[in-house]
Computed example of a mutant assay.
Amino acid sequence: MGGASPTTAKFHDGKKAYGAVVIIQLIYAGLFLLSKAALDGGFKTSIFVFYRQTFATALVVPLAFFLEWKHAPALSLPTFCKIFVLSLFGITLTLNVNGIAFIYTSATLGAASVNTLPAITFFVALLFG
């Protein structure tokens, strides 16, 4: 009485998932348009990537620290070094190359090429074990 049926609950969960995907794609589209405008305006690619990574770190680190600090295992030096090398070559290098390509192409091609980021990161992770 008064509750949603299981079928209705599944339907609403599906709508939430589609809504989340649409919102993420809109954010990506805005990011690509903003990136293209910044790079066309004379912003250097490496500095843009540095600011982008710094902003992302500043946003994610407090969340991870406050939500996971009691549950996370200690980070060993070899693991930290592997994460550093993976992020340096897997993400940062790829974003720099993507930014250089942005200068010579459109935001549409940049949006399509960013789908290679997970594949490149995966292959670098395989390379470094």
Rank of each mutant, 00 (worst) to 15 (best):
M1T: 12
G3R: 13
A4M: 06
A4F: 02
P6G: 07
A9H: 00
K10Y: 00
K10M: 14
F11D: 00
H12L: 13
D13L: 15
D13P: 02
G14N: 06
G14W: 00
Y18S: 13
Y18R: 01
A20W: 10
V22R: 05
V22L: 15
V22D: 11
Q25K: 13
L26R: 09
A29M: 05
G30P: 00
F32A: 13
F32V: 14
L34G: 04
L34S: 06
L34P: 04
K36R: 06
A37N: 12
A38K: 07
D40F: 00
G41L: 00
G42Y: 12
K44E: 15
I47K: 09
Y51M: 10
R52L: 12
F55T: 14
F55K: 01
F55I: 15
V60R: 03
V60N: 01
V60I: 15
V61G: 06
V61R: 06
F66C: 06
F66K: 06
L67W: 09
E68Y: 15
E68G: 08
K70N: 14
K70D: 14
H71D: 14
P73K: 08
P73N: 10
A74F: 12
L77E: 12
T79A: 08
T79W: 07
T79M: 06
F80M: 04
F80W: 11
K82E: 10
K82Q: 03
I83C: 05
V85C: 01
V85L: 05
L86V: 13
L86W: 07
L88T: 00
L88C: 04
L88V: 04
L88W: 11
I91W: 04
T92V: 10
T92G: 07
L93W: 05
T94H: 03
N98D: 01
N98K: 15
G99P: 14
I100H: 02
F102C: 06
F102M: 11
I103F: 05
L109V: 15
G110K: 14
G110Y: 14
A111Q: 08
A111H: 02
A112S: 14
S113C: 07
V114I: 15
V114L: 09
V114A: 00
N115Q: 12
T121R: 11
T121S: 07
F122E: 07
A125E: 01
L127T: 11
G129T: 09
